[in-house]
Design a binder for these strands. Sequence first.
DNA 1: CATGAATGAGCGTTCATTCAT
DNA 2: GATGAATGAACGCTCATTCAT
Lengths: 223, 223, 223, 223
Amino acid sequence: MSVSPSKPVMVTHLCTGESEAKRQQILTGAKAVFAAHGFEGASMSAIAREAGVSKGTLYNYFANKCDLFAAFVEKNCREKLEVLAPVQKLSLSPEKTLTALAREIIRLIISPESLMLYRIIVSEAPHFPHLATTFWQSGPKRAIETLSGWIEGQVAQGTLNVDDPVFAAEQFFSLCQTRIAHRKRFNMPFDNEAEDEEKVIHAAVRMFLAAYGVKPSEAPAAD
Amino acid sequence: MSVSPSKPVMVTHLCTGESEAKRQQILTGAKAVFAAHGFEGASMSAIAREAGVSKGTLYNYFANKCDLFAAFVEKNCREKLEVLAPVQKLSLSPEKTLTALAREIIRLIISPESLMLYRIIVSEAPHFPHLATTFWQSGPKRAIETLSGWIEGQVAQGTLNVDDPVFAAEQFFSLCQTRIAHRKRFNMPFDNEAEDEEKVIHAAVRMFLAAYGVKPSEAPAAD
Amino acid sequence: MSVSPSKPVMVTHLCTGESEAKRQQILTGAKAVFAAHGFEGASMSAIAREAGVSKGTLYNYFANKCDLFAAFVEKNCREKLEVLAPVQKLSLSPEKTLTALAREIIRLIISPESLMLYRIIVSEAPHFPHLATTFWQSGPKRAIETLSGWIEGQVAQGTLNVDDPVFAAEQFFSLCQTRIAHRKRFNMPFDNEAEDEEKVIHAAVRMFLAAYGVKPSEAPAAD
Amino acid sequence: MSVSPSKPVMVTHLCTGESEAKRQQILTGAKAVFAAHGFEGASMSAIAREAGVSKGTLYNYFANKCDLFAAFVEKNCREKLEVLAPVQKLSLSPEKTLTALAREIIRLIISPESLMLYRIIVSEAPHFPHLATTFWQSGPKRAIETLSGWIEGQVAQGTLNVDDPVFAAEQFFSLCQTRIAHRKRFNMPFDNEAEDEEKVIHAAVRMFLAAYGVKPSEAPAAD
DNA sequence: CATGAATGAGCGTTCATTCAT
DNA sequence: GATGAATGAACGCTCATTCAT
């Protein structure tokens, strides 16, 4: 029942590197099964089969189903949601920055893996309180922080007029979820997804700037 | 999993009323168990026990677990989500109307039963596509229609300036989900929920009017 | 289940001493686990952990669980039960000798380790017939032989009148098990264990001498 | 796979009669498997197979393995050990009464079912403290009470001279376990079991009377 | 129509044993 | 010689579903 941490020493030797590889192999199998059936619906047998290992091996790496599930969520949150950061570095005009950011946020939110994680974490939040925090901190929190940091910079430059940058960031995040994110989460069809995406982005930016932008004449030029 | 329409047809025979009562009794038990354990985690035995009927009776009224689940979702969506409509009838000023509406939307969204339905439907959306539609049409769609209808009226009156009322309504709906709804869905704690609620409401209305309101001087007085 | 003699032969090679030490180390771990959980309830993993060796090493020293169990029983029977002998060497009066012997027998029987061995061997006797013999010969048989030898000496001296010394010894052994041993084996509580012990000893000696003693006037003085 | 229940006509009604029959059917299967493999070694699957029912049915009647085991022990203790009582009613001489009683005690102790129960209860006493009490009260305690009651009567009649009848009864009980019972519990062979039995009986009675009997001249005649 | 005993596949988990390193 | 990762059968137990009453 030992779960070897086997910190990936990797490099030169052969000995314990295999463990980490198998751990990832198991987590890959787990992802497929948890994604398709949720926590309760996934069976350890199915995960073992999918991962190409025996059930015994599963339990050599993860003490029980809950632990495996937690590891799966952590791994996937880290891998999938930590993609946002670099966008704001570009010193574009507020409008162009927000537009680029909105596009990235939407793309991230509606990616199949994010949807899968959202589904599974929302549904298990009452039973696995810690996992929701993991998800939140890997994704939404990070996006909000990034955006609120950028907002603060803009306020300092006089290009935005915001008294609570964190809350404003959360509002922008909410606006980016208009229509598309909700429908995707409900698995509902679209008439024209690409068009909707542009509309959501444009309308979110427009509304945000209508509320928080300074009058064009007062703002310093950018871009 | 196929969802078949197992609702007993209202035939002209003797015990129709009694049957319907028992049906509701079963659905009440089902609600408690599905709410607590989700679809996979709920057992038909537990539902029968909770409802105070035998398992055989359960299967007389619902062909299988999937059907019972579908009926439970439908019933609860209808009962819980159809609460919104009457608010906009009051002919208040746009600001007051939107404020009242936002408060109602938030209260509805974060009510325990709505959260439970949201969780369960989002998580089962891939397996029960029809249920998501039921939920959507009972709740969000209705709210959006109500709001967009009111918006159209305001546009006609010259108090709002909106080119796509449905989309604007969706945006408002998104804004109402800032912070509180997301955190509730993730079961995350609040520092000060009541304060946040006021903030969300006020900021949503302010942002919406900043984007879609006409200049005060142009708008007709109300309230 | 077959019990094969897996004790490593004392070959002339280098590491014999080390091997024997590790063998004892394993048996020490095995004792803790078998004592606590019995044969079926003990797991080889637990024994390996308790002994501080790997499972592979376990199987280098013992071919399988049955063999390890057999070795554990043998070792512990030898160590625990071979404590009785020296008492009868003292040439006390029959009454004092029997009293001393009874006290030793009772103390031995109700020691935690003897109880553990008794439990485990009685319960596994049908599956490991050889082990019961090991136990019997290490403990009860030895005690009976010791006592019957002493009885024969007393008969020769005219202080006892016994026609079947072995059977008489077995009777005395049985009398020593009155109340205390049976209750201990059933894990039943005592009101006053020390008092019971004195009573059992005294009554066993009295009854034995009533049956097999010669009249005081006829017996040679001792002590 | 179901064994025809062979409907027990059962009193007047039909409803719960079948249940008790199946319960006994299960306990019969459980007896075979527990007797052969002990508590840990018995599997619920094997018991179900032996009893001719499905595993699900097993769990409809007994909540878990421990409960089933407890029920098995209780049933068998009651059935097997409650056989002793009537012997002492005969008003024979002390010698003949004790002889008859000793024979019954020995026969009972060495019956295969009693041995099986003894084995299983001694081995599980640490884990199931209650069961030992059940066994003790069904068998040994009852035998001791019966015997001590008879002893008290003899003391009143002046045919025995005993100050602690309960303890004397326990001694007699111990004497009856000389040789045969111990060897049977260890599954050890006999040279001549029938002869040994007579010897044990005769020697137990002789020793008991040597210790507790009054001189023949003082005792009232009986038989 | 209502019941609940019966089913057996499937669940999460453990374990004696093997074998490449 | 020592290791512990890997195995897969077996464990105790649950559950959706059926059907005789």
